[in-house]
Design a protein around this nucleic acid. Structure first.
Lengths: 336, 336
DNA sequence: TGTGGTATCGATACCGGTATCGTGATCAGT
DNA sequence: ACTGATCACGATACCGGTATCGATACCACA
């Protein structure tokens, strides 16, 4: 049992040629049912499982789909990955995940590495890759789907939504609710370009209505509930007259909510807390946090399906951009 | 730029043989510094990146580390994956993730698939694989680390903690706090064997102290905040005299907390809510939920490092079992 | 000058599959 | 019985690298 079994061993055990064994195991045509049985039996008995390395090298294609996400510290990207995985189940394709930590250099390195495995396709988060990485993708000659954003020029296909618009829509909703003393609270701002786009959309819309942010505060490190709690504390202590905090995501907003609850600040009456993503977690606080619900699973599934379609369609299908619009959830916040 | 560049192309461009180019790019010995420069330059200029398929096939080893987790719907396993990724950064090894959805058949299939890529090592969640899968792993001849559990017999090495003991410890703590009317609330019970082990440890310890569960309730589907909220509602409506609910994890417990807050039930005074994992999310509710803090990142990192050590040590190192004990966090619960 | 050692390189043989094409056998139709 | 088509199968040539070993050049030293 120790020695690696090769197709040759299976063939020998089944009394046929390597080629026939190969065909039989892959369900190719041109094999008699007798031999199919024999080969399958032999493979099972000697404990054979294929060698994807050799198979992919020989056939010049692999059934790997590379998926590159910036972070695992927040449930959002695991959910995207989950969507990809679901869409790929039963197709014979297997996802391979890479994590960039929002580092463009690491992203480039990961993509190079993935491409060297000759994947069937690539799913990459975001549209804002540096020029060098972009070129890498353009030259790659595999279907590529960029996800989670549509504000920019995709390399190939694209599934997501406009963060700029999400920020604008939220600002409109907040203004409609009559809020005037608004702060921004974020994390990791220079690295997460999508959060930046939301912020910009939000601020621009405020400005267009003659308003400005009262203040803003950016915490170091990754977003977390604890960071949000601290941000809310700092902001409301320095600016007791705030009536709304726009957080860069739900994790922070929930931290803010936890602070407000403890500090006896009425939410959303006295203070509106705005997040982003619409995490299921918010079910624990019905109506409290204003947010935009994004469909992470659906984005992952759609991206994977685009890859599959493009792979099935032999020649590279035309690039598609699919927008999966977030839904603004106002919760208990009633427009005046 | 379109045509795939091969090592041969690089060699030609650099005016050396394929073999010299190969050595130069891998930093092997026996290459003059002149040629190293020439080859590197040529590779950069024609946009060459290697072919891991060919390299791994030829060298009979790949730098892939397979990581199999049961779920992505909860932040716990992404954090483990994150730990693995961190430990692997800069080592030249790349993690490949698979998700089983707690389905043993899917797990077997994923493992077969991974093994067919001849990975350098395998990290697998849990010790309770069916016999057939266990045999697959035993015959695999790659370093294997099973994680998140130590209650059982590992195939090779193992990193985690005893869920039975975690359940026992928690029961001891709850009894010490004087709680007598205790319910169990879980999800997905038949599939998550580790949650089962905790439950059993918990119940056994209650019994040893002459107590029994007042009731228990299992929700269908995956654990979630919403499910926990509903479980808490059902349990406390049917059993108004409960003074403690032992949830199978923190997600459910937080849902329970959210119900209690809305229902005006004092936590932990009137009702003790117990979870498991010690998610960072609990920072939003300081002191409210009793839980056991597990070190997911650390488990992932340790597992990856074990694989690396075993790979570096040429011959398979002796199996190691590393216990990373969870810490019981009682929060505001004071023993009477 | 002869000898041995070291540094550098290339020819060749694989790694374990798959693509391709050719061969013999079987069978229907005339 | 002969022809052409279809079926089943195997021999052979790769896929794009790496391992191995032998060849060459250069140098130190006897």
């Amino acid at each position: 049992m120790k020695s690696k079994k090769t197709l040759q061993d299976v063939a020998a055990a089944a009394g046929v040629s390597k080629m026939t064994a190969s065909r039989a195991l892959r369900g190719d045509k041109d094999v008699s049912s007798t031999n199919i049985q024999k080969v399958r039996k032999a493979a099972r008995e000697i404990g054979y499982f294929g060698n994807h390395l050799a198979a992919s090298l020989s056939s010049k294609r692999s059934d790997l789909i590379g998926v590159v996400v910036p972070s695992l510290s927040n449930i959002v990207f695991p959910q995207v990955m989950s969507g990809v995985t679901n869409a790929l189940v039963g197709t014979g394709f297997q996802p391979v995940f890479g994590v960039t930590d929002y580092d463009p250099n690491k992203e480039n390195e990961i993509l190079r590495n993935m491409l060297s495995w000759r994947p069937g396709g690539l799913i990459v988060t975001g549209l804002d890759q540096p020029e060098e990485t972009r070129k890498l993708l353009l030259d790659a000659d595999v279907p590529i789907v960029q996800i989670m954003d549509v504000d920019g020029t995709p390399v190939d296909s694209c599934v997501g939504f406009s963060h700029a618009k999400a920020g604008q829509d939220m600002a409109t909703a907040i203004l409609a609710a009559g809020r005037k003393r608004i702060a921004y609270a974020g994390c990791n701002i220079d690295k997460d370009t999508r959060a930046q786009k939301r912020r910009r959309g939000f601020v621009d819309t405020l400005n267009q209505h003659g308003q400005t942010l009262v203040t803003e505060k950016i915490a170091d490190g990754l977003s977390s509930v604890a960071a949000g709690r601290q941000l809310a504390k700092d902001l409301s202590e320095h600016h007791p007259d705030l009536d709304c905090i726009y957080f860069s995501n739900d994790d922070l907003a929930i931290g803010g909510l936890s602070y407000c609850i403890d500090a006896g600040i009425a939410v959303p009456k006295t203070m509106v807390l705005v997040g982003f993503n619409g995490l299921e977690l918010l079910d624990a606080f019905p109506g409290k946090v204003v947010t935009s619900r994004t469909s992470r699973q659906e984005i992952g599934e759609t991206a994977a399906n685009l890859i599959l379609a493009s792979l099935k369609g032999a020649r590279s299908a035309d690039p598609v951009t699919t927008v999966i619009e977030p839904e603004v959830l106002l919760g208990d916040l009633k427009p005046k």
